[in-house]
Design a protein around this nucleic acid. Structure first.
Lengths: 195, 195
DNA sequence: TTGACAAGCGAACGGACGTTCACTACGCTA
DNA sequence: TAGCGTAGTGAACGTCCGTTCGCTTGTCAA
């Protein structure tokens, strides 16, 4: 009975379901969804998908998608040729956008960039910075700092006189805190949207 | 008992859990996670979070996060002052990163940028471009084009002689197709990761 | 200081859940 | 064409799930 390996098709349906509802349904409902009449067929399917690395059991033994379930392929930029369809072969890597940018939701926040003081670092007005809240940073990190009671995003640097906030734009001068310099968080990602 | 409204804190823990495991745990496990000894307390919490719009019941009555569960606030960059905690008031907007960048998963793909030909547009080597597959584009769009059998990301322009692909880097020349120029897709977003 | 309210506790309950197992149907390959 | 492997069926079963309800604890306003 049945064709060889419809699992890919089944997976696609589960991905669609998850995209709609952000949870995987019970085995009975998966059955309905995929046109299976028995839960044991679903159970077998789940075993196969688990082996293939698309789903797994969460700590409390609930069925959950793996990271791989969400991954989107990253195509290589200058694959020399090939049809768009053949481009699949050239796929090199993959990632889930949310996972990639925001591993710990509760400690990260998004900040909309104002101004062009970081322009030379490819950070433009209107871009969104992903900031991970923490008070320690390394030299060279881009940090969201509170300096003299004002928020600013700059590279953290140091010279003989102490810490300095370095803009990436020749028209701006390095910033030295007059009173206080606090690291609010470290920039871990950048998001830009073209309409 | 307890402080007024720890729900925000509870929500944060659930968000972290979901980020780790991509599913919500059973009421008993939520209880452990949040330090509650009874499932009825969890049940009450779930009702509150449902009212607040952060979770909902999926079609087969499973607890599932809503889109709002994933939304991240966008803080305004130069909020003039205020404590980090008070920054909440200055939150202006919010978005879910995946939703924001990739509204139609099936027609978009991610492309890793190679080279510096778009540097002046803030698109650097190693960045990831979100490309929406379509064959029509407007002048001024950044497009992923197949020109003479090679992929390239450039601005789409036109002059007296026809269509031109414009780099954003003074060291590069505009590209004119010798044989064929095909639009593979339009760039709708940019993702960059700092480690 | 009293009452109301919100939040949590703990136990009991019925039902839905995923597992298991024996059986069947189909498509390879020998 | 016999045999094997893969996919699915259907029913039985025990477990864990979320609900419910009466009770307790702490906070706040009157």
């Amino acid at each position: 009975m049945g064709n060889p390996n419809r699992d890919h098709e089944y997976l696609a349906k589960l991905q669609d379901y998850f995209a709609s509802y952000r949870s995987l349904p019970s085995y009975a409902v998966i059955g309905e969804l995929l046109g299976m009449a028995s839960k044991s067929a679903v159970s077998a399917l789940v075993k196969r998908l688990t082996l293939a690395g698309f789903v797994e059991m969460s700590p409390d033994k609930r069925l959950a998608p793996t990271k791989r379930f969400f991954e989107r392929e990253i195509a290589d930029f200058n694959v020399p040729a090939g049809l768009p369809a053949a481009a699949n072969d050239a796929m090199s890597d993959s990632l889930s956008v949310d996972e990639f940018l925001i591993p710990r939701p509760s400690t990260s926040l998004l900040v909309r960039i104002k101004g062009d003081s970081m322009m030379d670092a490819g950070i433009f007005d209107g871009d969104i910075a992903v900031i991970e809240k923490r008070h320690a940073a390394n030299l060279g990190d881009f940090v969201l700092a509170i300096v003299d009671n004002e928020y600013t995003l700059k590279e953290l640097g140091r010279d003989k006189q102490g810490y300095v906030l370095l803009p990436h734009n020749r028209d701006y001068q390095p910033i030295r805190a007059e009173q206080s310099l606090e690291i609010f968080g470290v920039m871990t990602g950048l998001i830009r949207k073209y309409r």
